[in-house]
Amino acid sequence: MKRLKKYLILTEQSLQVAMTYRVRFFTTMVTGLIQVLALYYIWKVVYAGQKSLGGYTLSEMVTYIFISYAVRNLYTFNTERKISENIRDGSVIIDLIRPLNYQLARFFESLGSVIFEGILVGIIVIAVGFGIFHIKGPASFMYGTLFAISLTFSVLINFSLSYAVGLLSFSTTSIFGFINAKRFISNFLSGGLIPLTFFPPWLHKIAFMLPFHAMVSSPISIYLGQIEAYQIANVLLEQLFWVIILWLAGYFMWAWASRKITIHGG
């Protein structure tokens, strides 16, 4: 408990920092609404004259767009950027002299923006969805609860991936290429922009072999009640599997990276 406390204060303070960026909160929100709106228009045109595509009716698709935005946005891409900036400008030195586990510290730190920008913006966007676009709620109370659990795993997977990518800064001095590559691949293969059921079978198979779908597609399919109750356990276990694998990957990368450090400046 005491140990947890010294990590929780990191969350509290990063939340404080996030809250000083009020204008950024506003732009994130507007950006989010714009993105959702764009997708809405595109899908409306796509559905012109069609009842159902890829197993979704238009109204299900609209729900999909809003929920998937909220899920994708839950974890912003700041972790890897922060880690790489810290490494580039040498301020990682401050983290190295503190009696904290680097990985855990970064995780708890990232929760600050998850709470402020992720959850809050998500709630606003979804509220707009309910109010104006009449999106659907979760299939049932139980599905809603399981959706929340699935979201937690999604955040953990997201963090672990970002962390691993961020640590690459120790071997490539500029990391933006990796960050972008990861973003593009995960947008494409997570089902964030288009449901994976639209994919041709071979691509569908590839997507399900990689961790990205567990970040967006899995929680949404629970929310929409597309998964039979007895299969949900499988979906959650699969997410948990990726959490463990990726967390361990990050752990070993840090063990390797922290011996390679050279600090610039000073």
Partner: peptide, 24 residues
């Protein structure tokens, strides 16, 4: 490496973008 990966990433971005349209 960042020069190479930077360009690979941009290409990837374009390709996945157009691939989404193709999927649709």
């Amino acid at each position: 490496s960042s020069f190479i990966i930077g360009n690979v990433a941009t290409i990837l971005g374009q390709v996945t973008g157009i691939a989404l349209v193709w999927v649709l």
